[in-house]
Nucleic acid binder design. Structure first.
Lengths: 151, 151
DNA sequence: CCACTTTTACCCACTTTTACCCACTACAGC
DNA sequence: GCTGTAGTGGGTAAAAGTGGGTAAAAGTGG
């Protein structure tokens, strides 16, 4: 289970250092083997331990492939899913096409999200967070499960 | 299982270098023997390991041949299916007619799609991807399996 | 059927990129 | 303040990508 927000700098080669507190967990659960793909709703990346991703890929592949919406999802998610290994220094080299998609420049944000991480450009994350906060407080349609949630 | 995006250049002879990370898998699963054909829905090519393709071809051939739609599919898919071998440098020579169909010039994109690959012209892929993203977010008709998919 | 032309496939050599490694810096804890 | 660990920056060897030359094969025409 990953959680927390981390401000990280990409270096000149496009590498990001995984915060040390996650490293042991990543090496034990998947020997440092991760899979990154795009998020289709927001311009950010999703980062899964290999095992987690393989379950998801099977689900996606088993969708009815004659259905246009399913084909789109397959092309987008599997098409962008890229294997990434942690190097000896606990860093990941993010592939160019994925960096471009999420518009990652120097300053990025790593969000722990349970079994996966999300990777955002810092500026885009800050903007999006403000939008989310406004929408949460504007009191528009919330599903019942959410209304009954006690924090 | 193939996945991921790869930006590749065609050389002057129409050859494309398979990214090294796929080569071992391709040589072990089919000794470098592949089959390329056209995608009938999008202007791109499909690239299968020989064994995978043979299963598909049998299915296509067993379609009722008095049915006009089935005949069309047979002519299009089987008609364009071309055997291609990886050369000693891990490259594929894409036949002229297939290159023309998918409008492949110098810059192309190789998409891993599970048991097969897709080959797109880069510009066409980027345009199509933007369309897909819009359609995914416009919330139009999604199959039930897709709505329940949790990533 | 033979000779000539064109194409294809294979091979070799060069260039670029990547991955791995090592060293330095900064911060935190002792 | 010193020591250990995390973060950062490059250098280098190896691998991947690229380009073209040549010999064999296929196609064409006389």
């Amino acid at each position: 289970m990953f959680r927390g927000v981390n401000q990280i700098n990409l270096d000149a080669k496009g590498r990001m250092a995984i915060p040390a507190r996650y490293r042991e967990q990543i090496t034990t659960c998947c020997s440092g083997q991760l899979v990154a793909t795009i998020d289709t709703e927001e311009r950010c990346l999703l980062l899964y331990p290999l095992e987690e991703w393989e379950v998801i890929q099977e689900k996606i592949e088993s969708l009815p492939s004659f259905n246009p919406a399913a084909r789109r999802i397959q092309r987008l998610l599997i098409g962008h899913a890229t294997d990434i290994d942690m190097d000896g220094n606990g860093r990941l080299l993010l592939p160019g096409p994925l960096r471009e998609y999420a518009e990652l420049d120097k300053k990025i944000v790593l969000l722990g999200q349970g079994q996966k991480f999300e990777i955002w450009s810092e500026s885009r994350w800050l903007e999006t967070r403000e939008e989310y906060l406004q929408e949460v407080n504007s009191g528009t349609e919330m599903p019942e499960e959410l209304q009954n949630l006690s924090l």
